[in-house]
Design a protein around this nucleic acid. Sequence first.
DNA 1: GCTTAATAAGATATTAATTATCCTATTTAA
DNA 2: TTAAATAGGATAATTAATATCTTATTAAGC
Lengths: 142, 142
Amino acid sequence: MIEKFHDVLKANNLKSTHQRLAILNCIDMHGHIDIDAIYEHIHLNYPSMSKATLYRNINDLVTFHILEEVKLPHQKQQYEIKKVPHIHLLCQECSGVEDIFIETKPLLEAVTLQSGFTISNSFIVMNGTCRVCSHKNFSSIS
Amino acid sequence: MIEKFHDVLKANNLKSTHQRLAILNCIDMHGHIDIDAIYEHIHLNYPSMSKATLYRNINDLVTFHILEEVKLPHQKQQYEIKKVPHIHLLCQECSGVEDIFIETKPLLEAVTLQSGFTISNSFIVMNGTCRVCSHKNFSSIS
DNA sequence: GCTTAATAAGATATTAATTATCCTATTTAA
DNA sequence: TTAAATAGGATAATTAATATCTTATTAAGC
Ligand SMILES: [Mn+2]
Ligand SMILES: [Mn+2]
Ligand SMILES: [Zn+2]
Ligand SMILES: [Zn+2]
């Protein structure tokens, strides 16, 4: 954990500052998180960090494809460490965001076939109820 | 066109004001459009409309499910008249947004099977090159 | 370990986006 | 036509995001 993102920064010719490492570790720990939550969290251990620094770095890290924005319906956009393409599941009970890695090629091909549109990448969010919350609901009914 | 949205508003117990009709007609004409573009467009014929009125109404109309927000990667969110579920295709050449109505059930079922997540609705955006822009590019190469 | 150039942080000002308030105008049903 | 309910417009207030500028930190070469 100590220097998990040091090399990533260096590889992009970005200086490995405490602030950047704190931001990346925070996002990594939370999985998916919005700017305000990042700020609050970092502020606990690191009260001197400026909000301008946070905004500046988030934007830079997105530009360098180290972070990726996650746009969810009806809420502030979140950020995550960039990983291989995947789908997001947003639970409307617990507000949790899950990653799911699954084959989307058939749908993309069907879209291309029907529309003549050449697809380079896709952003998929599904709204619903996660496994845990489903069980909770079931228990409380029966 | 004159009163296309009058009944929709009445059905939701919303007063059918000139401002609301102008907003809805504008969004309807453009298909997908962001707040600033709506404001600029309406301002041409209707210079007295307040921006507060625009924000207020957009939010209300979304609450009543007359409008729907469309979140696109790396740009300001847009709005559209609510219609049946569909997918958005965003052309990175011309920035156009296309609707495509296509079966997504197989993917949703695969996701549910793999994750145990119960899906109520989904938001899908695909990035790429539209048919028109593909042809343009092809012509300029050959 | 020093020295230095490049880059980033922090403080702050500025700008932009969004919402709230309050008073007047419009809508709509009676 | 009247009156109650609702919405609009002007503006203030709030919140979000960016820009500027000075100081501090990083990282590479000695
Ligand atoms: Mn993710
Ligand atoms: Mn659409
Ligand atoms: Zn849940
Ligand atoms: Zn195009």
